[in-house]
Design a protein around this nucleic acid. Structure first.
Lengths: 385, 385
DNA sequence: CTTAGTTTGTCTACACAATAAACAAAGTTT
DNA sequence: AAACTTTGTTTATTGTGTAGACAAACTAAG
């Protein structure tokens, strides 16, 4: 059982990473500026930059503006050094994307699915990945990894223990996919993926303590602390949708009663709207709410309950930002006000100071971009010499 | 804005810390064993060990058992290299302790207080610290720091924003104490301190994701993630006592209704016992419960509600361990069973796998030992050359 | 008791990364 | 045209960790 010890190689690797991230964040930037920005010596920066150029992670884009002396050589991140693949397996869709290293989608494949068997879903997933790989542009490092988001409980080895809406139990998804594709593979819970997608490319850029509320059929929570995803002991964190907000309240699908998601999810919404229009979809109800006061009231109530659960999380985490995402975010114009009002009423002023409450910016792409970002992150931190 | 860059000095410091911690954890241990255990080179270990001996952080305790060759020289941590001071300011007591670097209490001062004014409490605190310093044994590094735990919301600069039970508001306690004592000072919320105390010296030793429930007059929560205290954006995390568990439920002192602590705290207990015996104390009720079924039932109900809130936290954090501490832990024999039963009923099997539910081991010392440990930790990581 | 082998801890030569300072290159300002 | 400024590279130096040789101190087998 050896610990991570420190030596010169690690120092170099860490500093190289600092240089690369400085370039990614501040591009275009010169060697001299990197040195000043990072505190590293000019010579060190020069040497590391040259290695990064050699490895095609960055490139020189030509001279910049002089500030009274020799003109600097500006450096840019080579976002096309490799490409990442992200998949979001939903209840009635599979969304696959190919992104460059900056998270720009260069190709996507969206398929609606209905009542497919387990085998059919797996087959479709594999076909989708094959298609995505085929459509990945040529590059130095090629496909640098595959990330897959799933609406369920995923352990740290990439096994899906339970995905009620997919009716999956103990599916070793990572293993199944790895048998077909010899790339680094990441399987992650959809809420965790969405959270990461948003802090990397969406509403949470530059935020470090973020709680992402994935409000869909159920409610999942993605927890970003100190800029990193928190997963808990086994990877089962963020099941806050099942926290009790009404002791002995409404029955929940999980067997308990009074769970948050029994009051504030899409499921709860559809359930409440049943007596107005049975079998309505979220999208239909959003339209109806324009003219039907009763439907509008239901959205308001959902927002209000959403705020109560969010308030609970705020008290526990004292986060910098709350991001509301997934399907209910489509009803932003209907639920934003009641949600915020409810949060205001239930939360102490302390906790609301400096707190941002936002909706997802990446819409349906949150989770797919998130898993894609995991793969990129992995590649950038271990992929370099 | 310079980032932490990596160079040889930092490498050395980190490795020295690894060597020291290896000794602390595995003492008595030889140089050769440290090398094998840490992965560092024998020569490196030898050199760092000699520096640590020079600095009196460790010492050679003589030859150990041979394993078939030259007998090893065993090394021990010099727990008497310095002493730390910890204070727990409670509602009706002040507890001060002096501990060695291993957290052993070498001197303590316990004072009960009643209805003291703010100035009187501050004065008493300062007098207590003076007394503790006087009773600190002579050592190489003397008093290495002072930690103070307070039942209230503390920001990251050591300011007490709100301590309802002390009736404090915006008290810059760190500054007040620092004017009197020129030592490193740490002011921390009582639940955070208790959590840290327990993972360092109590029920949570060797656990890394721990939620500490400080169940006193109110309920505070200390959150240990990946072995570190999580404090949130401003330091206000862990106010989970005010999470809603019954929408529109019992009125809480915070202004909201249905808060967890309105159902599961000492305050809730005393409130419910009012009709049986007005003005009873927790200690009296614990005694009464032996023969009075009604009182026993109240404890059971408190335990049951305690479990509901704990279950909420388990779903969110997927922790490795729950530790129940502070005053209600005195009623362990009364509330343990109903609490665990309630947790079982409200929590998914996944989350209960590998989960430990324990009561505080340090009784009244949790918080004082915790802040003392903060000071020690601080000293050991930055105090070394 | 002798001898061979083992373990511990130190010493020496070396490799490697960061750094400071000198320097060359390429610009601006007066 | 001369002096100054800024950028980026080169060179010599410093300070780490490491491998391997070594001496010291022990065990075990004959």
């Amino acid at each position: 059982m050896t610990i991570t010890t420190w030596n010169q190689q690690i120092v170099k690797k860490k500093n190289k990473e600092i240089v690369l991230r400085t370039i990614i964040t501040n591009a275009p930037i010169s060697r001299a500026d990197i040195a000043q920005h990072s505190g590293l010596n000019k010579a060190t920066v020069s040497s590391l930059v040259n290695e990064l150029i050699e490895e095609e992670f960055i490139y020189e884009s030509g001279p910049g503006e002089s500030s009274g002396g020799r003109r600097p050589v500006m450096l840019l991140f080579n976002k096309k050094a490799g490409y990442s693949i992200g998949l979001d397996i939903g209840v009635n869709y599979i969304l696959g994307i190919v992104t460059d290293l900056e998270g720009n989608v260069v190709y996507e494949k969206h398929k609606s699915i209905h009542n497919l068997s387990f085998d059919e879903i797996i087959h479709l997933t594999i076909e989708t990945i094959k298609n995505l790989i085929e459509h990945t542009p040529q590059s130095r490092y090629g496909v640098i990894g595959i990330g897959i988001g799933v609406p369920g409980i995923v352990d740290k080895s990439g096994k899906v223990l339970l995905a009620p809406n997919l009716k999956w139990k103990n599916v070793d998804l990572l293993d199944i996919i790895y048998r077909e594709f010899d790339y680094p593979i990441i399987v992650e819970n959809e809420a965790n993926a969405g959270a990461y997608g948003e802090i990397r490319f969406g509403a949470g850029v530059n935020f470090h303590n973020v709680i992402y509320i994935s409000a869909g059929i159920g409610i999942g929570v993605g927890i970003i602390l100190k800029g990193e995803l928190y997963k808990g002991m086994n990877g089962y964190s963020g099941e806050s949708g099942h926290m009790t907000i009404v002791v002995d309240g409404e029955k929940c699908r999980c067997g308990n009663s009074g769970c948050w998601e029994a009051y504030a999810s899409e499921h709860a919404l559809l359930h409440q709207a049943k007596h107005i229009l049975p079998d309505a979809t979220l999208e239909e109800l959003i339209k109806m709410a324009e003219e039907n006061k009763n439907v509008k009231d239901i959205f308001q109530q959902i927002g209000s309950y959403l705020g109560i659960g969010i308030s609970n999380l705020i008290k526990t985490f004292n986060p910098q930002q709350i991001i509301i995402g997934n399907r209910l975010a489509k009803a932003k114009h209907l639920i934003e006000q009641p949600t915020i009002k409810s949060i205001n009423e239930h939360t102490l002023d302390f906790h609301q100071k400096d707190l941002q409450i936002n909706f997802s910016k990446l819409s349906i792409y949150s989770a797919a971009l998130g898993v894609s970002a995991f793969a990129i992150e992995n590649f950038l931190s271990i992929g370099k010499g």
